[in-house]
Simulated scan of single mutants.
Amino acid sequence: MLIERVVNNNVVFSRDAEGQEIIVSGRGISFNKKVGLEIDPDRVEKIFVTKDFENDSRMEAILKEIPIDYFEISNSIISFAEESLNKKLHESIYLSLSDHIYTTVSRFKEGLCLKNPMLWDIKRFYPEEFKVGKEALAIIYKKLAISLPIDEAGFISLHLVNASMDEDLETVYELTNLMQEISNIVKYHFQMDFDMESIYYHRFVTHLKFFALRLTTNKKAAANNESELLEIIKCKYINAYACVEKISEYLQNNYHYTVSDDEKLYLTIHIERLIYKTELD
């Protein structure tokens, strides 16, 4: 690989074997190097394909501003996340997470700490990502000797959710807020608290996550024409279906979203199962 453009001592632009523009990073990768010279493969720590990023000018500005330590921290967090979550995260997280951690630490050094208003919901809806978020705080402390508040584990969790769902961060915030609203309707309808560690709550949240994602991205589920089964379920699980009708009304009034019969069916089944198992316990 040849250097095409030098960003700083730690980042250069080059091209891969297929001719795609790439960003190559590594500590001291361009030290005493000029455009046209070979990149030392022993110094390469990470390679990004630039087409994976939407805003080239913002991307280069981030690469210029952020010290290499923050990319190394992000790399450690992302490697841990991919192993723990057993999923590949979108390449864009390397820049977005590095940028986030850098600005957070900069604010922290100035005595500014942002409260995370969604922390409780993040713990509930994304427990595995939140575990990684807490480990991320340990990685940051080990590298920088800075102890960030637990709120930051929540913010990092949302970056992981964003990178695994391939949605923008604004959509992830909307999604989490919507899940919280629906969950509250269920909670207050049945006047019941749920065991967030139970497998039934986890299954309910998983279904809720995909349902809410369809709503926030305006994607309807494929229709299965389960109207006859819905009529049976309505009679069998009267209270759970009444709760679903409340959810449907709320979504129609606040989001102009019409819940389909198929969606009502599966929501009713998941809510009934959650309530039944909670009452048993």
Rank of each mutant, 00 (worst) to 15 (best):
L158M: 14
V172E: 10
A223C: 02
M165K: 11
E82L: 02
N254H: 15
V6N: 01
G133I: 01
L213T: 05
F194L: 00
L144T: 09
T268Q: 06
A17F: 08
H159N: 09
Y173I: 13
A138N: 15
A136W: 02
Y241C: 03
P127A: 10
Y70A: 03
F71S: 01
N9V: 02
A222M: 06
T176V: 15
T258D: 08
Y237L: 10
K109S: 07
Y188E: 14
T278L: 11
K64Q: 02
V161P: 02
L158N: 02
E231K: 11
Q180D: 14
K88W: 00
T103A: 08
K88T: 10
V11I: 12
F48A: 03
L175G: 09
I199K: 13
L85D: 00
L251H: 03
V105N: 08
N253K: 15
A136M: 05
I68C: 05
K219Q: 14
S79H: 12
N253V: 08
V105C: 09
D16M: 09
L230V: 02
F108G: 07
K246L: 14
I140D: 07
S106R: 08
E197F: 11
P149W: 14
I233H: 03
S92N: 09
D16S: 09
Y102I: 08
L280R: 15
K234R: 14
D166I: 13
Y70C: 03
L229Q: 05
E135A: 09
F53H: 11
Y276E: 15
L215A: 02
H100K: 01
R203W: 03
R273Y: 05
S79L: 13
L137G: 11
Y237G: 04
A240G: 08
L89K: 01
K264R: 11
I140P: 06
G133Q: 04
D121Q: 13
